[in-house]
Computed example of a mutant assay.
Amino acid sequence: MMNTETKQKISGFVQLIAVILFIGTALAISIILQSNKKTIKNGQKVERVLFVEAQSFTPAPYAITLSTTGTVESRAAVDVVSQVSGRIISVNDNFYEGGHFAAGETLFQIDPRDYELTVERLEAELARAKTTLEIEQAESAAALEEWKMLNGSKVAPDLVLRKPQQKEAAANLKAAEAQLADAKLDLERTTFSLPFTGRVLSSNVSLGQFITAGQVYGSVFDTASLEIRSTIEEESLKFLHPIEDLAINVKTKHMGQDRTYSAFIKRSAASLDTQTRFAPLIFGFKDDANDLLPGTFVAVEITTAETNEVLAIPSTARQKDGRIWMVNADNTVSPLEGYTILHNNGDTLALSGITEAVHLVTSSLPGAIDGMKVDIREARK
Rank of each mutant, 00 (worst) to 15 (best):
residue 215 Q to S: 15
residue 191 T to M: 12
residue 143 A to V: 02
residue 134 E to G: 03
residue 162 R to E: 00
residue 195 P to R: 14
residue 170 A to G: 05
residue 197 T to L: 04
residue 217 Y to C: 04
residue 177 E to I: 14
residue 172 N to K: 15
residue 160 V to D: 06
residue 210 F to T: 15
residue 147 W to K: 10
residue 140 S to Y: 02
residue 140 S to E: 00
residue 161 L to T: 08
residue 220 V to E: 04
residue 204 N to M: 04
residue 186 D to T: 07
residue 172 N to C: 12
residue 213 A to G: 03
residue 218 G to R: 06
residue 185 L to D: 07
residue 165 Q to V: 03
residue 210 F to W: 09
residue 189 R to T: 09
residue 158 D to V: 08
residue 162 R to P: 08
residue 175 A to L: 10
residue 209 Q to A: 05
residue 163 K to H: 10
residue 196 F to G: 00
residue 201 L to P: 06
residue 221 F to S: 12
residue 178 A to L: 11
residue 193 S to G: 11
residue 150 L to I: 09
residue 174 K to V: 07
residue 160 V to K: 01
residue 179 Q to T: 13
residue 133 L to F: 03
residue 161 L to S: 00
residue 190 T to Q: 05
residue 210 F to K: 04
residue 217 Y to I: 01
residue 137 Q to R: 02
residue 169 A to N: 08
residue 171 A to R: 07
residue 208 G to Q: 01
residue 133 L to H: 11
residue 167 K to D: 13
residue 148 K to C: 03
residue 153 S to A: 14
residue 154 K to M: 15
residue 186 D to E: 14
residue 218 G to D: 10
residue 147 W to S: 08
residue 205 V to N: 00
residue 140 S to L: 01
residue 190 T to L: 06
residue 151 N to W: 12
residue 147 W to V: 04
residue 201 L to H: 09
residue 215 Q to V: 08
residue 159 L to D: 14
residue 135 I to T: 02
residue 220 V to S: 06
residue 199 R to Y: 12
residue 179 Q to D: 15
residue 159 L to V: 06
residue 195 P to D: 11
residue 200 V to S: 04
residue 170 A to F: 08
residue 200 V to Y: 09
residue 175 A to Y: 07
residue 197 T to Y: 00
residue 213 A to C: 02
residue 187 L to N: 06
residue 216 V to H: 12
residue 189 R to N: 12
residue 185 L to K: 13
residue 140 S to R: 00
residue 190 T to E: 09
residue 133 L to G: 04
residue 186 D to Y: 05
residue 189 R to H: 09
residue 202 S to T: 10
residue 211 I to M: 00
residue 134 E to C: 08
residue 177 E to V: 11
residue 154 K to N: 15
residue 199 R to W: 03
residue 202 S to A: 05
residue 205 V to G: 02
residue 182 D to L: 14
residue 132 T to F: 03
residue 162 R to A: 02
residue 165 Q to N: 01
residue 221 F to I: 01
residue 158 D to Q: 09
residue 206 S to Q: 13
residue 143 A to K: 03
residue 170 A to N: 12
residue 147 W to A: 12
residue 180 L to A: 13
residue 190 T to G: 05
residue 143 A to N: 11
residue 160 V to G: 01
residue 159 L to A: 14
residue 196 F to L: 05
residue 215 Q to W: 08
residue 133 L to W: 13
residue 171 A to C: 14
residue 191 T to E: 07
residue 176 A to M: 08
residue 199 R to D: 12
residue 171 A to Q: 14
residue 138 A to V: 01
residue 145 E to Y: 10
residue 201 L to N: 09
residue 202 S to K: 13
residue 152 G to E: 11
residue 180 L to S: 11
residue 182 D to A: 11
residue 193 S to V: 07
residue 171 A to T: 03
residue 190 T to W: 05
residue 208 G to L: 00
residue 205 V to E: 01
residue 212 T to G: 05
residue 152 G to H: 13
residue 215 Q to C: 07
residue 154 K to Q: 12
residue 186 D to I: 10
residue 220 V to H: 04
residue 209 Q to K: 00
residue 137 Q to T: 01
residue 144 L to R: 05
residue 221 F to G: 06
residue 161 L to E: 08
residue 137 Q to W: 01
residue 175 A to H: 11
residue 181 A to W: 09
residue 143 A to E: 00
residue 195 P to A: 09
residue 134 E to H: 09
residue 197 T to S: 06
residue 186 D to A: 15
residue 178 A to F: 13
residue 212 T to H: 09
residue 135 I to S: 09
residue 200 V to G: 08
residue 208 G to H: 09
residue 207 L to R: 05
residue 153 S to D: 15
residue 142 A to R: 11
residue 167 K to I: 07
residue 136 E to T: 00
